[in-house]
């Protein structure tokens, strides 16, 4: 049985965008401390699309092989978060994190570990901020480094077929002074979206109904 489709209202969509924006902005500030240079972010894009479309959205934009750090989250709402970038950027990102003085061999040796930690700072930081603002806790899996195309990165459990709908949100990021760019993406299935929607409703009530009259 397909879960009933939940369409977010304008204000719910707005609140979710704002939550993601605050979460990602805080993690970008964390990454900035690690790499010592400015991280540029786009405005989050949020859509309910078929799983197939989500894969295609990443695939279309990126012809090259991708590398991703993936963390699953579970709790009041569950899903998968990914930090994705072209594989060609991978070593440069590691270099940005560990410093330019390391030899190429040393950089290659710690690539996976450094990527996992970078992904952890971004994804965990973003989700933790969102969970705090929603007054819920989330548990996060350990970061896992994957290589492949969009289809492989977004594999999302057996229960979800290609036409199953998912909440798909993504943000572009880039480093100002290096040739590094990528995406932060999150996927949630519809039961999770329904739970998230209730929490967003509470969040909106909280921020709207503090005992201060609303502007006319």
């Amino acid at each position: 049985m397909a879960a009933a489709f939940v369409k977010l209202s304008e204000i719910e969509h707005d609140a979710l965008t704002e939550l993601v924006n605050i979460g990602v902005s805080r993690s970008a500030a964390g990454l900035r401390l690690m790499v010592g240079e400015e991280i540029l972010l786009s405005v989050p894009s949020i859509d309910v699309v078929s799983h197939k479309t989500a894969v295609a959205l990443i695939g279309e934009r990126e012809g090259d092989e991708l590398i991703a750090v993936r963390q699953d989250f579970a709790g009041a709402f569950s899903g998968r978060a990914l930090l994705i970038f072209p594989q060609a950027n991978s070593l440069e990102l590691v270099r940005a994190v560990v410093g330019d003085e390391m030899s190429p061999e040393d950089i290659a040796a710690i690539e996976k570990e450094a990527l996992a930690e970078t992904g952890n700072v971004i994804l965990n930081g973003c989700l933790a901020t969102m969970a705090n603002m929603l007054h819920r806790s989330l548990s996060m899996s350990l970061p896992e480094v994957l290589r492949g195309d969009g289809g492989r990165l977004f594999e999302f459990g057996e229960h979800l077929d290609d036409d199953g709908l998912v909440l798909f949100l993504y943000i572009n990021f880039a480093m100002r002074d290096r040739d590094i760019r990528g995406y932060i993406a999150m996927l949630m299935d519809l039961p999770s979206l329904a739970s998230l929607r209730l929490l967003i409703g509470d969040f909106i009530d909280r921020v709207m109904n503090e005992d201060i009259p609303i502007a006319v």
Binding site: D14, E18, V207, M208, I212, I214
Partner: peptide, 11 residues
């Protein structure tokens, strides 16, 4: 750009 954020700031 967020209506919610404008409401919160206004309040």
């Amino acid at each position: 750009d967020s209506k919610l954020a404008r409401i919160v700031a206004a309040k």
